[in-house]
């Protein structure tokens, strides 16, 4: 069996977000790029499953839609332990576009399990995994916080509001994962780092896709008024402000 993990190349989450003067494009100066945190969790779990599968899972691949400058991030995934990588050489303009491109590769390679993080920390769309599943006409399970693979049988837990559902599913399918899927993202080991360059990255050209949306402009949040301090002894005052001034009580 083969697992594909979809990974975004995103600004480090502590980056201060700035845009160009027209507010149309991210100002990438000084940005450190990382694997989208949820995708990193997906990758970690995929590798754990592979290691525990007793050979049932032969391979974990990663895929990224991005230009060549995404390759260091892809190699980090290889250093962490992915066996090989695919890159579709295109700007990842929106979720629909990304999912359409991944679908093309996935159709050719017949992966049994596809894993995606629940959202990307740049566009916060929470859409690629489900869109990909629809393009492939695969079932998808979203908000997965536990993924068990026993002798080829898959058991997932997904978060529903106020609880969890245990789901059984047969391959192929798309699992859209979130926190809880593994304890921590895996840190690459020295050996992995040294081997990353020896692992293949297959680069392909994008396919034509419909364009359904367009970013018109970005805005930055308005700067907030200073925090109003209330004396620690006067909690009545706080309640009065929350009721009378903020009108939230």
């Amino acid at each position: 069996m083969k697992i594909l993990v979809c990974m975004g190349n995103v600004p480090d989450t502590t980056t201060k977000i700035k845009f160009d003067s027209e507010m149309k494009k991210l100002d990438t100066n000084g940005i450190q790029w990382v694997i989208n945190p949820w995708d990193e969790l997906a990758l970690t779990r995929a590798l754990e499953i592979k290691e525990q599968s007793g050979g049932k899972i032969e391979k974990v691949s990663v895929i990224n839609i991005g230009k060549a400058d995404a390759e260091p991030t892809i190699r980090k995934a290889l250093a962490i332990g992915a066996d090989d990588a695919y890159r579709v050489d295109a700007e990842p303009s929106d979720s629909y576009y990304i999912a359409a491109q991944i679908a093309e590769v996935a159709k050719k390679e017949n992966f049994d399990i596809i894993m995606c993080g629940i959202e990307s920390s740049d566009f916060n769309d929470a859409a690629v995994g489900s869109m990909l599943a629809e393009f492939l006409d695969y079932p998808s399970v979203s908000a997965v916080s536990s993924f068990e693979f026993n002798d080829g049988n898959v058991k997932l837990k997904r978060d529903i509001d106020g609880g969890k559902e245990t789901i059984v599913i047969s391959t192929p399918f798309v699992a859209i994962v979130q926190k809880g899927i593994c304890i921590n993202p895996r840190i690459p080991a020295m050996r992995g780092i040294m081997m990353a360059r020896t692992k293949p990255i297959t680069v392909s050209a994008p396919v034509e896709t419909d364009s359904l949306i367009e970013t018109t402009i970005f805005e930055l949040p308005a700067s907030k008024a200073a925090c109003k301090m209330v004396d620690a002894e006067d909690t009545d005052k706080l309640i009065e402000l929350l009721h009378g001034e903020a009108k939230v009580l």
């Binding site: 989450t13 977000i17 920390s121 916060n124 949306i213 018109t216 970005f218 930055l220 949040p221």
Partner: peptide
Amino acid sequence: SYNGNAFQQMK
């Protein structure tokens, strides 16, 4: 977008 550090207007 950007975890609330920016807003995107989209058409």
